[in-house]
Design a protein around this nucleic acid. Structure first.
Lengths: 237, 237
DNA sequence: TAATCATAAAAAATCGAATATTTAGAAATT
DNA sequence: AATTTCTAAATATTCGATTTTTTATGATTA
């Protein structure tokens, strides 16, 4: 017999959140963080145990990640972590340059004062992160920076009023992050990224569309080139 | 007891094809063809019966379509056919203009002779479709034209060497098709689309990147505007 | 009468088991 | 020895049933 009609608030999931959606998020993180090696086969039986869930939500989660490009589904041969390649990194970088700069132009055309505020706030949070906190682990530190960084880039284009475009850009950004974290772990700040972010934000809130779009393109391209170098080295080692 | 170790070749699915993938295709067709009304709630129990399958493959199929934008998933409230709106059509049109023309430029830069041949062949197949066949139903006729049309547009950009971009463009094209079929059923050839296709193909195979990209943009924009008109009328009726 | 709460019905999400497919290895054949 | 064929183990896919959540309905109270 089961009594509990009274729900346990602490274990109750927030509205709209399902096991599958939580799983998708967790798996996406594991992949972008590089904890799941590119190309690895994802054995459902293992994942089932690891995450303590059944097949249904697991498949649903993987199914979504497949659409986002983080995992690859092959016919009757299961799922595997999306492989990495120079060509793919090149494509992701170029597409980010094109689409994010386009989104930025749209945002500059449509954005209101609240949007401007969001950019300034996100920039502040990003650049005021404690340089090196002793209490936190290296991974936690990176995670925090990554989260703020993502937020900043999203804030820039959030006013473009194009949901599909935002979704595309977000996915591309996540894919890009993965490469950066996989191949640029040692030197995350080899150039003055802070200054670049400031310049982009300035040009944006002052509505200098051409300048802002150009700075953003360069920003994305530089990161791409850097990662590409590391990837090539890594590959030829 | 079950004897059949010997598999029935006629009922055996081709390699890599699963029930889920077949279902996704069927559902996508039903949605783009307008047989499933936009915004309709998709009751899993009903779909289960309609397609004669169980929940697992059904969910997996819907999950994929959700990533492609054909269905919408809301938390614990199930799936529904993606709604249509003026704003969404506008976005799809603009994104197609941007991304397809960009892809075309890349293809023109990378494409070889085989690619050129593919374009010419696709154009021929598209324009040599029997104008009005008596043996076929109206729907079959449209389906055939749509298929060739899709093939032609894909052939144009197929040499861009960017899988992700191709995927985006394909999805956007499908979404666009849906609007056209939903709101432009009466007059599918109100302008000289044939000529437009010929002009685009010519500029492309002669490697006139600027001209080709521009013609393609106009082509997409015209369609968008036409559908938008019908949609607005339909909405205010 | 309107609003709130409890209850029942419907539907979605998840689970555990059954089925079908692929893969790897051994035996048989060329 | 190499190739093919068969067999068994592993794995992906699918199913039917269970659990959880939402939605609709009616009763209760202010």
């Amino acid at each position: 017999m089961t009594i509990s009609t009274g729900k346990d608030p602490s274990s109750t999931q927030a509205s709209g959140v399902t096991l599958a959606s939580t799983l998708a998020q967790r798996l996406r993180e594991q992949i972008t963080e590089g904890r799941l090696t590119p190309g690895t086969k994802l054995h459902l039986e293992d994942l089932k145990e690891t995450f303590g869930v059944s097949l249904s939500p697991l498949r649903e989660a993987l199914s979504r990640l497949s659409g986002e490009g983080f995992v690859v589904l092959q016919g009757q041969r299961g799922y595997s972590v999306a492989p990495v390649s120079e060509a793919n990194l090149r494509e992701v970088t170029i597409l980010r340059m094109e689409m994010e700069s386009f989104a930025l132009r749209q945002a500059i055309a449509c954005g209101d004062r609240q949007w401007e505020g969001g950019i300034v706030a996100a920039l502040h949070r990003l650049n005021s992160l404690p340089p090196t906190t002793i209490s936190k682990s290296r991974t936690e530190e990176i995670d925090e920076w990554e989260a703020e960084h993502r937020q900043f880039h999203l804030a820039l284009i959030s006013a473009c009023q194009m949901p599909l475009l935002l979704q595309f850009c977000t996915t591309l950004h996540d894919l890009s992050d993965r490469y950066r974290r996989l191949f640029l772990e040692k030197n995350p700040t080899d150039r003055d990224v802070q200054e670049e972010h400031i310049a982009i934000a300035n040009a944006t809130v002052t509505r200098q569309a051409d300048k802002a779009a150009d700075l953003l393109r360069q920003h994305i391209e530089r990161t791409g080139t850097n990662v590409l170098k590391s990837l090539a080295e890594n590959h030829s080692k």
